[in-house]
Amino acid sequence: MYPASFQVFIPASLEEALELLAKYGEEAKVLAGGHSLIPLMRLRLAKPKYVIYLGKVPGLSYIREENGTIRIGAMTTHGEIAASSLLKARNPLLSETASRIGDLQVRNMGTIGGSIAHADPAADYPAALQALEAQLVVRSVEGERVVGIDDFILGPYLTDLQPNELIVEVRVPSLTGAFGTAYEKLNFRAGDFAIVGVAALVQLSPDGSKFEKVRVGLTGVSDKPVRARGVEEALEGAEAGEEAIAEAAEKAKEGLNPPSDIRASSEYRLEMTVALTRRALEKALARARDKVA
């Protein structure tokens, strides 16, 4: 199907893009890799009057480390994030999650900024971004603000992004010490969205005996990505081991009321949230233990 007609603006600089957003933002959609927006436009679920295409704006695609923080440009593709040697070493949770998004062609085009702005409740990144307590840098002609992922995604396809604003950067920590991470995704068809997705980050004490810090992010099980805070609190300070994980993972379903749809019932999603939380934490623990030695 052909999308409805629209007018396109192709700014050559970030300043120009922000000015266009300030002028047309209410009736405009920002186009990055297009792998969320174009399918919606083709189904005519989205019929923007204006499209602002970021492909010719320089300086929005990068992955670099500065003072313990990894900064990722909003136009960086899933494929670049999956393949980044910096992320594989210092934040493998994000690269592992990116490698599970869609398929090879989708990862070649889709961007992290676009995916976050789209805020699909079953998208993969938000689980990892929750576990990593990611920060987003958002800019408009009025200036720049930094907002945490938990405050940014408000509901299905709903974010805190104002019509004149653009996500320009994603910030995640550069991990050090005895850390381990894992992303567990349940889907039945190749390349599909997550029925349940669980991202785990485990930081052990230097001797590997205790859980110092635990973060668990969930996607697909609520109207927005959430942290499994009950699991985190049960494990932090506890003796590091599989038994503690099995007990704590039960808390992953606390307070959740997952949707029922054609792919899975609410009850099934709840049970799988517990199972995948356990698996993700076990894998993260094993990877953290490899670093203790």
């Binding site: 396109v8 192709i10 186009l31 297009g34 792998h35 174009i38 399918p39 083709r42 189904l43 295409y53 492909g55 494929g79 398929d103 090879l104 062609q105 989708v106 070649n108 085009m109 390349g191």
Partner: peptide, 25 residues
């Protein structure tokens, strides 16, 4: 609908689904 990959071409060295790329891109 961006699923089947029959429209895959190489754009700047990378495989893309050409049904999900506007010509101006």
């Amino acid at each position: 609908t961006s699923n089947c990959g029959a429209c895959t071409v190489i754009m700047n060295g990378k495989a893309v689904k050409s049904c999900t790329v506007y010509v101006f891109m």
